[in-house]
């Protein structure tokens, strides 16, 4: 497994995609954002979206419950206390994963690659962990801190 801790173009594109979604559609700005040396593959809520094409892999976004509720409520133009239906939380969080990977895909395709995305899946738990990192893979990991909690973004490319 190779964890990319340098700020290369893929990492920059991933961070730009995350920031774009949060700024434009959620209206939240992180207090800090950094490239992580380890993937965050567990959280109270985990959204994962697989892809294939030039390379196959997985995009995983994790958050604690408070941050997930703030994010999804804002995205769906609701108040956090109105998010009583788990389906709204699941749909909203899945859409965030979809938009983040969709944003990254633009960069990926511009580099001459192809990418076909699956539909997102969202899991809840305390915590849920995704077993995504194989022995032979490239990992791009981000950690973003918000007032309501932390967000982990991990992009896994299988080799």
């Amino acid at each position: 497994m190779t964890i990319h801790t340098e700020t290369d173009s893929n990492t920059q594109a991933l961070l730009a995609a995350v920031n774009d979604v949060f700024e434009q559609m959620i209206g939240l700005a992180p207090n800090s954002a950094s490239v992580s040396a380890a993937p965050e593959l567990s959280g109270d809520i985990v959204g994962a979206l697989g892809f294939c094409g030039s390379r196959s892999g997985l995009c995983v976004i994790t958050a604690n419950d408070d941050l997930a509720r703030v994010m999804c409520a804002s995205l769906l133009m609701m108040e956090p206390e109105e998010l009583t239906d788990p389906a709204d939380l699941s749909d909203g969080f899945g859409e965030v994963v979809n938009m983040v990977l969709g944003g990254f895909k633009q960069h990926w395709v511009e580099q001459g690659n192809t990418m076909d995305m699956s539909v997102p899946s969202v899991s809840f738990g305390h915590p849920v962990t995704v077993a995504a990192a194989r022995k032979q893979c490239d990992l791009f990991c981000l950690s973003l801190a918000f007032d309501a909690g932390n967000l982990g973004v991990t992009l896994v490319f299988n080799n």
């Binding site: 559609m25 995205l75 769906l76 133009m77 749909d91 899945g94 859409e95 979809n98």
Partner: peptide
């Protein structure tokens, strides 16, 4: 194809 996105667009327009 995203029901969530359709919901977001409708709410954006109503808002």
């Amino acid at each position: 194809d995203s029901a969530t996105m359709r919901k977001i667009i409708m709410r954006s327009l109503r808002q």
